[in-house]
Design a protein around this nucleic acid. Structure first.
Lengths: 203, 203
DNA sequence: ACGATATGAATGAATG
DNA sequence: CATTCATTCATATCGT
């Protein structure tokens, strides 16, 4: 029933300025978005195509959402990141069609979502976006996904140095050894040799 | 059976500042793995050391397990996530008094727990797995997804953004531009004109 | 039938 | 951007 949801008794007020809890023991209090906040965020995501808000956008969004509950910039930042990441992840689990454009395990999926993603995809979370007050959608003029990766730093450590950083290195190497594109069945599930690891890698 | 998402009929959102009766976590029917599916999953987990299957692996595993019952990629994904997390959790309780550096579920003393995520770690029943034909792994050439990185980073941002205005130094000094009366709220959230994109840019 | 436990599902927060 | 981890919520299952 109740997993002992121990919420801070001294609840606080959202508008006072910040959480009054000093002593940062950890993020024992993670942001719990309100329905209104979620609604608006989804609205931005689906109806406006916002995927990777810039730092300025994040600031404004969070400022706006603050009237619906406690929230910070990083929450907005993480929300968009997670939402986007999970949408893609879902797709990756589901689609049998792995592009697998060979070559060093790095495949290029150019235009992943140029069009607006469908709100309801069926088997995953399947968000139900009430869709906020009338706000027009309209079509994307171009690329929503702007690289704002370097920006997140500024949310993480909101101290003094924004440190633009170079944002040039993106290391992501999958070492796709062995290949063997289409193994009809799972070798490791049927016959077993001694080298399970090797087989696992072909999985 | 009531798949109905009857969550908190008694809307007790007392001061907690959250908990609204919204459907967020409902699932019409959650996956109920068959014994065969469980057997194979555990086999992969314990005998093959699979901990965090990649997206491709997940696809294949789920495809393979589908012959034993309905299953989706996300089920496999969650299964491994949960299984790993709970094993870790259990271990934490079991030897909680051991003076080892332990942070966020990762042992700092790498020698022992790092090597093989499982196989013989002796933390689990160890005999509850029906296990398939004898296939003990070995090898060790594997870089099973498990990384177990030492998370020791200093939390420099313990206290979160005290003031949203001060952080945005990454670009120009926008921070709540005066622009115009409309900027007080998010125009695109209210209704405004038709140029969403334009407004988005001002966001 | 309950209440406790096991476990599927979801998501905030990081890290690389 | 992909992956991972901790938590939490929601149920299914099981014991008494």
């Amino acid at each position: 029933m109740e997993p002992q949801n121990l919420q801070n008794p001294a609840s606080n007020d959202q508008e006072t300025g910040k959480n009054s809890s000093f002593l940062c023991r950890q993020s024992s209090t993670r942001w719990t978005p309100t329905t209104d906040q979620i609604r608006i965020l989804k609205d931005l995501y689906y109806n406006n195509g916002l995927r990777s808000p810039s730092a300025e956008q994040i600031q404004r969004i969070s400022a706006r959402l603050r009237q619906y509950g406690k929230i910070e910039g990083k929450n907005v930042f993480y929300w968009f990141q997670n939402h986007k990441a999970r949408e893609r992840q879902k797709k990756r689990f589901t689609c049998d069609n792995i592009p697998m454009q060979y070559r060093n395990g790095v495949w290029k999926n150019e235009e992943i979502y140029n069009k607006f993603p469908n709100v309801n995809s069926g088997s995953f979370p399947s968000s139900s976006v009430p869709s906020a007050p009338g706000l027009m959608n309209v079509g994307s003029s171009g690329n929503f996904g702007n690289g704002s990766f370097a920006v997140d730093r500024s949310f993480r450590d909101c101290s003094i140095a924004p440190n633009p950083n170079t944002c040039g290195s993106m290391s992501q190497n999958f070492t796709w050894i062995g290949v063997d594109p289409c193994s009809v069945t799972y070798p490791f599930l049927e016959k077993k040799n001694c080298y399970v690891n090797a087989e696992l890698q072909t999985l």
